[in-house]
C-alpha cells in the first residue's frame, strides 16, 4: 500500500491534466465560462443572505454583523466539501470506461474530484476578500497564517471521505442517494448559518463530534471574529483524524481496487 501511495507522486502530471480538463469542461459552452466559479458562490450567498436577513430575521443575536461575511466564511468551504463528496461518490462509476478498458490508476479519480472542487473554492476566495474589505472586517495577520493550514486540513479530510465513498459506492449504489440527503442534514447540523453560541451546552458537546464544525469555526475565528484564534487545538486534533481517515480510505480503496473493473 505504501508503495502505491508513493506512486501518487508519479501521477501528478496526470492529476494536473485531469483537473485542468474538469475545470475546462465544467463551464464549456456557457457564456460566463470560468466566471461561474465566482458567480456561483456569490449567488448562493445572496440566496442565504436574503433568507436569513429578510425572510427570517435573526432577531436578538447581534454579534453577527455583517451576516453576509459570517455566512460566507462557512458556506464557501462547505461547498467545496459537499461537492467533493458527492462528486467523489460518483466518480468511479462515471469514468467506468477508463477503469474497465484502460490501465488506469483509479485512485486518481477521487483525488481529481477533490482538487477540482478545491479550485472552485480558491476562485471564491477573492470574493470573500472583497467582502472583508467592503465591510472593513479587521483581520489579523497572526491569525491569517493559520488559514492555509485550515485549508490543508480540510483537503486531507475531504480526500479521506472521498476515497471511502468512491470505493464503497461502486459496490453499493445506494450511497449516492443517501449521501445527497445526508449532506443536507450535515449542512444544517454545522454552525454555518448560525453561530456556535446559538447552541446549548449539550448541543455544543454534540457539535464537537462533527468534524466539519471545527473547520467552519476555524474559518470563522480567523476571518470573522475578533480576538485570537483559540480553536487551534481542535484543528490539530482534526488534522490527525483527517490523516488517519485518509490512510484508512486509501487502504480500503486499495483493498477493493481489483473489484472495480468488474463491478463498475
Amino acid at each position: 500500500m505504501l508503495s502505491n501511495l508513493g506512486q501518487l507522486l508519479r501521477y501528478r502530471g496526470l492529476i494536473q491534466t485531469l483537473v485542468a480538463r474538469e475545470l475546462k469542461a465544467r463551464y464549456r459552452g456557457s457564456v460566463l465560462g470560468v466566471f461561474w466559479s465566482f458567480v456561483n458562490p456569490l449567488l448562493l450567498l445572496l440566496v442565504y443572505n436574503f433568507v436569513f436577513t429578510t425572510v427570517m430575521p435573526r432577531g436578538e443575536i447581534v454579534d453577527l454583523e455583517p451576516y453576509a461575511v459570517f455566512l460566507f466564511c462557512g458556506l464557501l468551504p462547505w461547498t467545496w466539501f459537499s461537492s467533493s463528496l458527492s462528486d467523489g461518490a460518483n466518480v468511479l462509476i462515471m469514468n467506468g470506461n477508463l477503469i474497465k478498458k484502460v490501465m488506469f490508476p483509479a485512485e486518481i479519480l477521487p483525488i481529481v474530484a477533490v482538487i477540482s472542487n478545491m479550485f472552485h473554492f480558491l476562485f471564491g476566495l477573492p470574493i470573500l476578500a472583497g467582502f472583508l474589505i467592503y465591510y472593513a472586517v479587521p483581520v489579523r495577520l497572526a491569525e491569517l497564517v493559520w488559514f492555509p493550514f485550515v485549508v490543508a486540513v480540510q483537503f486531507i479530510l475531504t480526500l479521506g471521505f472521498a476515497m471511502v465513498l468512491s470505493a464503497l459506492t461502486v459496490h453499493f449504489r445506494d450511497i449516492k442517494d443517501l449521501l445527497a440527503n445526508l449532506l443536507t442534514l450535515w449542512f444544517f447540523a454545522t454552525p454555518i448559518i448560525y453561530p456556535m453560541s446559538f447552541l446549548s451546552d449539550r448541543g455544543k458537546a454534540i457539535m464537537d463530534l462533527n468534524p466539519f464544525a471545527h473547520l467552519a469555526i476555524s474559518y470563522q475565528e480567523i476571518l470573522f471574529y475578533d480576538g485570537p484564534f483559540g480553536h487551534w487545538k481542535w484543528l490539530l486534533a482534526l488534522a490527525a483524524a483527517g490523516l488517519v481517515l485518509f490512510l484508512f480510505g486509501y487502504a480500503l480503496f486499495d483493498r477493493l481496487r481489483d473489484s472495480f473493473a468488474e463491478e463498475v
Binding site: 480538463r21 475546462k24 469542461a25 464549456r28 459552452g29 469514468n95 470506461n97 477508463l98 474497465k100 478498458k101 484502460v102 488506469f104
Partner: peptide
C-alpha cells in the same frame, strides 16, 4: 476501447 477517456466537451 478506442477513445476511452475522451471528454466530449
Amino acid at each position: 476501447e478506442l477513445g476511452a477517456g475522451f471528454h466530449p466537451e
